[in-house]
Design a protein around this nucleic acid. Sequence first.
DNA 1: CTGTATCCGAATAGATACTG
DNA 2: CAGTATCTATTCGGATACAG
Lengths: 127, 127
Amino acid sequence: MTEDTKVDPVQACPIAPVIDVVFSRWTTPILWTLNEFGKHRFVELERRIGVITAKVLTQRLRQLERDGLIVRTYYPEVPPRVEYEISDLGRSLAPLFQSLSEWSPNLDKVAEARQHYDTHEPAHRRP
Amino acid sequence: MTEDTKVDPVQACPIAPVIDVVFSRWTTPILWTLNEFGKHRFVELERRIGVITAKVLTQRLRQLERDGLIVRTYYPEVPPRVEYEISDLGRSLAPLFQSLSEWSPNLDKVAEARQHYDTHEPAHRRP
DNA sequence: CTGTATCCGAATAGATACTG
DNA sequence: CAGTATCTATTCGGATACAG
């Protein structure tokens, strides 16, 4: 790395685009829930995820639908009913979810590291 | 899912905290680069990642250092030198990076899905 | 029920200038 | 070189009201 030229973002980190598509804000619980527990209606998702507002949930659902990761089905009844489910493409994320949940025990170490960083304050660390 | 009570966020999606720690904005290219290519100085990271500003890069490096995912070493020379490298904990993310890069070919399907969604506009889809 | 529309405040990132 | 300090622009989410 001695050149002065900057690197193409995708070249610089090939996995970043995956993160953008799959794990941008709020999409993780949506995809995980639909993958884990199957079809959900709008209010069911809203309740299960807990703190999300309807507006934001709608935005994220549209985005995921557009990206082909979930399927939206509208039933023109009264009252209207909509069901969201994971698509085949979305289902292909399963190994990724698996890797993530396998790593999650390490969060304890992260918590420890934070504790250590916040309590100890070595003077020699900064310039 | 018939109760009216909202679910605890962590219960609702156990992998979300991992995303927050490891794949929040800008941390992906930093961790990936350090894991893939070893030690980097500040400017080297800045150039390799490309579009990030020094301020934001500093913020993210501090965060990752605090979380124990990278190690910062300061050499009090003139001019000063700082080296960042992945920690053992950070290295444990390797399988995760692997899963992510294995999924990345599917980004083509995402692009197709977007194309389809944007061109076709079926009227029966919305309430 | 499943959204949309609007307004507003908070959080984030970028630009720029400056320091040890 | 490796940052910090400010200021500003933009984005994002929350609250509210309302519609089909």
